[in-house]
Computed example of a mutant assay.
Amino acid sequence: MRYKILLLILLFVDVFQAHSQFKRDTSFTTYSAFTKEKKHYPEIEIAKLPLAKNTLEKLNIPYKNLGYRKLNLDITYPKKEKKGGYPVVILLFGGGWKSGDKSMCNPQARFLADNGYVAVSVEYRLSPESKYPAAVLDVKEAIRWVRLHAKEYNIDPYHIAVLGRSAGGQLAALIGSTGGDKKYQSGQNLFLSDDVQAVVDIDGILAFHHPESLEGEAASEWLGGTYQEKPAVWDQASALNNVSSQTPPILFINSSNPRFHAGRDDMIKKLNELNIYSEVHEIPNTPHPFWLFNPWFNETNNFTLKFLDKVFKED
């Protein structure tokens, strides 16, 4: 018995050391993106939004225990109670599946909360720490956590959207098209659904291996190998290959960079064949991380709000 306990302790120590020593990639931040894009778009400003008087914000709430550390989320929500609760938007940051953090979503979260939504900005594991499908499992667990805590935050658990930007947009589309998929069933609260009822994909690719795709090193790092090494994984992780009659309505908001539209038009064709509602808004003369900056921050939010109101408040 003591021998077994010792083995378990040694195994835990090995796992802890392996994961606690990973080097965080801090190359993508709002400021680093601003510094880069300011050279080409001198008029831009970092979008900031104060917390409205009618909203509350709680930061760094643990939703998943990895053993060696916890994953957290931020919740921004209306103060006023509402019968049946408010619809929810799960927000996913971008950064090539290797960098970025949830705080980059908070200005948009504040906008959504001020307009009648509960906004949840989620931390998920990045490629320096864990490869695919870790991030997918994390976000799906966050969705179940939100349903578990619906009463606490005046949430309507039947109206949940997932919104992501760049790599987060890719994740949002994949998560939206794989609700209930058994290969992603892992973690806590599995008695609750990980389905979502709407997706907002902001400049996230829909297919990793596609005539329009230019994915390379960052995707290979996250997916655990190149397409030649892991073709099945590259295909599995592409939302385009997971569209079904259960896929929810999707809003695509895109920059003028065609690289980040990969697979979008083919996905829309599939959605149309299944009579699933979708919208596309391509904002001209925009850099990839346009959503972080004025003058495009409000435009992005207005497209998002109009879509969510149509899907959730007109049904």
Rank of each mutant, 00 (worst) to 15 (best):
H159Y: 04
A135T: 04
V136W: 12
L126Q: 15
H159Q: 15
Y117E: 00
S166V: 05
L148W: 09
A167L: 06
W145C: 12
P157Y: 00
D156R: 09
V118K: 06
L137R: 11
C105Y: 02
D138W: 07
I143G: 13
H159A: 13
I160E: 00
A135R: 06
V146I: 13
N115A: 09
S121D: 02
H149T: 07
Y124T: 05
V146P: 11
V139H: 06
L163C: 11
G116V: 00
F111E: 00
L148F: 14
Y132K: 06
G164P: 04
A172G: 04
L137C: 07
N154F: 04
V122N: 04
V118Q: 07
H149M: 13
S103Y: 08
A109P: 14
Y124V: 05
R147W: 09
L171H: 04
Y124A: 01
V118R: 01
V146D: 13
K102R: 11
K140T: 15
V162T: 06
V162E: 01
F111R: 00
L137V: 12
I155R: 12
K131G: 14
K131W: 02
Q170W: 10
G168D: 03
Y153I: 00
D138M: 10
P128E: 09
S103I: 13
E152L: 14
I175P: 03
P157K: 08
V162A: 04
R125Q: 13
R165T: 15
L171P: 09
P133W: 00
R147V: 12
V122K: 04
I155D: 11
Y153W: 05
A161D: 00
G164K: 04
A119D: 10
H149E: 10
K140A: 11
D156P: 14
D114E: 15
P157M: 01
D156H: 03
H159M: 09
V139C: 00
E123N: 07
S121N: 02
P107S: 10
A113P: 11
C105W: 02
A134Y: 10
A134D: 13
H159S: 15
G168F: 02
E129K: 11
L112Q: 07
G168N: 03
S127Q: 09
Y158E: 15
N106S: 10
N154D: 15
C105R: 06
L112N: 03
Y153P: 02
A113V: 03
R165W: 11
I155H: 10
V118C: 03
L174D: 05
A135C: 06
A173K: 01
A119I: 08
Y132H: 08
V120M: 05
E141R: 14
I160Y: 04
K151D: 15
G116H: 07
A135Q: 06
Q170C: 08
L171M: 14
L174K: 05
I155Q: 08
